[in-house]
């Protein structure tokens, strides 16, 4: 199973991916950390809940982050397409609020291909576009065994994959080493049967 994960997780370059679920933000932070480079983060200005760079510094250096605040989704998509096509930043993350149609999704895909950069859309549940390369459902998991300082257990389900198989994995982020560790599923461990996945 772990070989499967390695085939799909450091997100495949020059494509656009999607993530949703309560832990989608952590997924994005980890994906950005793995991409190692400058990041463009596009969000709509009216949305509440700001990124906290102090919390983000556990994952990546906030100095490499540029945040573009846009008025609405169409402006955000235009900015994303231009940033992807330019390729100056390794990865472009956009927080979307409305479903993404096939045409905009395909445009983003082409732009990512032209600029050789990764696109990642954080979407709401069920709002994905058919053009996305992969789609991930991310949920945080309570980890009874972990100490509070590193309780970052997540369940990542790959529910759509254009070039591979889907699957589900438990992962944990190592803050000190800035490394992603794959954990054997909770259900297989003794004494944790009660924990919901």
């Amino acid at each position: 199973m772990s070989s499967d994960f390695a085939a799909s997780f450091p997100l495949c370059p020059a494509r656009v991916h999607e993530a949703f679920g309560p832990a989608a933000l952590a997924f994005a932070a980890i994906a950005v950390a793995q991409a190692r480079g400058d990041v463009f983060w596009i969000r709509e200005g009216w949305r509440s809940g700001a990124l906290n760079p102090v919390g983000l510094s556990d994952f990546l250096d906030p100095a490499s982050l540029l945040v573009a605040e846009v008025r609405d989704q169409s402006e955000g998509l235009a900015v994303m397409e231009e940033a992807l096509r330019d390729g100056a930043s390794r990865i472009v993350v956009a927080e979307l609020s409305q479903p993404l149609g096939l045409t905009p999704g395909r445009r983003l895909q082409l732009a990512a291909k032209a600029g050789r950069s990764i696109g990642l859309c954080l979407i709401g549940e069920g709002m994905g576009s058919n053009a996305a390369e992969t789609r991930w459902r991310c949920t945080p998991v309570f980890d009874a065994a972990a100490t509070p300082a590193d309780s970052t257990l997540h369940r990542w389900e790959l529910i759509k994959n254009k070039s591979g198989t889907s699957g589900a994995w438990h992962v944990r982020w190592d803050r000190a080493a800035r490394r992603l560790n794959l954990v054997s599923p909770v259900a297989e461990r003794p004494g944790s049967a009660a924990a919901p996945g």
């Binding site: 809940g49 700001a50 906290n52 102090v54 919390g55 510094s57 556990d58 906030p62």
Partner: peptide, 15 residues
């Protein structure tokens, strides 16, 4: 600028 540090865990998103 560099010099980011979180001596204690801080949330990823604040509202």
């Amino acid at each position: 600028e560099g010099g980011w540090s979180a001596p204690r865990p801080r949330p990823l998103r604040i509202f």
